[in-house]
């Protein structure tokens, strides 16, 4: 995986790693930073590190190595005070970059949106209600429990069950 004379990863290998792991790594970094621009910056820094010192990673654990380096880069960026606490909602509105800019990407995105919409409609009503109140109305679980006059544990259970169903359904659709 490395070029022996320079101690650097072959650029073709880095490209293959990028195509294989970049999307998942971007999601992870976005979850940590809650900022799509900073997540992209951390992603670029991660693969720059991979070019420089990726040869130190074992081939069987290169994904873990990338995620670990990416997490460190994200923490560094956050400590520099560059996190503006923009929510994932802004990224979903397309403010976080042009990751959906290409026509093929837009098509994939629209297909994914349709899948999620169908999965949402197939949820039981009480679970869908909790998901909509938490995700779309941006209410805390405590506020949802108070509004629905239900115990907090019940609300959390509904949310967990809903997310489990959604993950399973979307996983099967994508599989």
């Amino acid at each position: 995986m490395t070029t022996a004379d320079q101690g650097r990863i072959d650029p073709a290998v880095v490209t293959a790693l990028y195509e294989c792991y970049a999307e998942e790594l971007r999601l992870f970094l976005t979850g940590v930073l809650r900022n799509a621009d900073l997540a992209d910056e951390a992603l670029q820094n991660t693969f720059a590190k991979a070019v420089e010192s990726g040869h130190t990673a074992r081939e069987e654990s290169v994904k873990g190595w990338l995620f670990q380096v990416g997490f460190r880069e994200a923490i560094l960026l956050r400590r520099r005070g560059q996190v503006h606490d923009r929510s994932l909602r802004a990224m979903a509105r397309g403010e976080g970059g042009d990751e959906f800019g290409a026509p093929d990407d837009r098509l994939l995105r629209s297909e994914m949106v349709e899948q999620v919409r169908r999965a949402l409609t197939e949820l039981p009503a009480d679970q869908r209600q909790v998901v909509e109140m938490r995700i779309y109305e941006d209410k805390t679980f405590a506020a949802i429990a108070e509004e629905l006059s239900a115990p907090l544990g019940t609300i959390l259970t509904r949310m967990r069950l809903a997310l489990k169903r959604l993950s399973r359904r979307l996983g099967s659709d994508q599989g």
Binding site: L27, L88, R89, M112, L120, L170
Partner: peptide
């Protein structure tokens, strides 16, 4: 975390 982020992002994209 990556999977949860993807799920939440997809849900928000439906709303968007």
């Amino acid at each position: 975390v990556a999977r949860s982020t993807g799920l939440v992002t997809n849900l928000w994209e439906v709303a968007a």
